[in-house]
Computed example of a mutant assay.
Amino acid sequence: MTKEECFYLGKIVAKFSFKGEVLIKLDTDEPETYTEMESVFVEYNDNLVPFFIERSYLHKSTLLRVKFEDIDSEEDAEDMIGAELYLPLNLLPKLPEDKFYFHEIIGFDVHDTEHGNIGKIVSINDSTAQALFEIEKDGKQILIPMNDEFIEKVDKNNRLLKVNTPEGLIDLYLG
């Protein structure tokens, strides 16, 4: 299993008990979705290693408290702190047609109501206060805030994102 075949689930942030339990900060709005997992992939030395779960439950509503098989001491748990966790893409919950996961829309054509086809989505920049669509057209980069007010339609079948951007935004890049 490679990272490209998986999605980022979260990170081990702390050990919890002397029995090897750990706390995982999940990267999700619905942590309860992941309380019944049988296993996860843990990144070790750039490899994804499967770990089986003995038990897990929510801890203070936002963290997942997990006891992995064969992790039986504080020392074993200590070695796992900071490790990132992944699950196969096919385990992502299905979203309604008008919603999307970031990885799903890479390569989509973007059509603006005023400018027509403004390029393809090459990536999503979520390191800023507001996530941005990074679009490329004829070697130029266009950045559009990922704002529900700008998104008119997500057409997954035709790999198309229709947007209605504020006046002048696209002109800043193509003008």
Rank of each mutant, 00 (worst) to 15 (best):
T2H: 09
K3M: 08
E4Q: 12
E4P: 00
E4F: 04
C6D: 08
F7I: 06
Y8I: 03
Y8Q: 03
G10P: 05
V13F: 00
A14N: 15
K15R: 13
F16R: 10
S17C: 06
F18Y: 09
F18P: 02
G20D: 12
G20S: 07
E21C: 05
L23T: 08
I24W: 05
K25M: 11
T28V: 02
D29R: 12
P31A: 01
E32M: 09
E32S: 13
E32R: 04
T33Q: 11
Y34R: 05
T35F: 03
S39Y: 14
F41R: 06
E43H: 02
N45G: 01
N47I: 06
L48Q: 03
L48W: 07
V49C: 02
P50A: 03
P50E: 15
P50D: 08
F52L: 13
F52Q: 11
I53L: 10
E54A: 08
E54Y: 14
R55G: 00
S56N: 07
Y57T: 13
Y57L: 13
H59I: 05
K60L: 15
K60H: 10
S61N: 14
R65N: 10
R65I: 00
D70V: 08
D70H: 12
I71S: 00
D72F: 01
E74L: 13
E75C: 01
A77F: 04
E78S: 11
M80N: 09
I81E: 10
G82L: 08
A83E: 07
L85D: 02
L85T: 08
L87G: 01
L87F: 02
P88K: 05
L89Q: 09
L92Y: 02
P93R: 11
P93Q: 10
P93A: 12
K94H: 06
L95D: 10
L95A: 03
P96I: 10
D98L: 08
K99M: 12
F102M: 05
F102E: 14
F102H: 07
H103G: 06
I105S: 04
G107H: 01
G107D: 13
F108K: 03
D109M: 10
D109F: 10
D112T: 08
D112G: 04
D112C: 09
D112H: 09
E114F: 04
E114C: 02
E114Q: 13
H115E: 12
H115K: 10
G116V: 07
K120M: 09
I121A: 04
S123G: 12
I124F: 03
I124H: 04
I124C: 00
S127G: 14
S127E: 15
S127C: 07
S127Q: 14
T128W: 02
T128G: 06
Q130G: 01
Q130W: 03
A131G: 12
L132V: 05
E136H: 00
D138P: 03
Q141I: 15
P145H: 05
M146L: 15
M146N: 07
N147W: 04
D148F: 05
E149L: 08
F150I: 14
I151H: 05
K153R: 12
V154T: 04
V154F: 00
K156W: 02
N158S: 10
N158R: 15
L160P: 01
L160D: 05
L160E: 14
L161C: 05
K162R: 14
V163W: 11
T165H: 00
P166V: 07
P166E: 10
P166N: 07
L169K: 05
D171V: 08
L174S: 00
L174I: 15
L174G: 03
L174P: 01
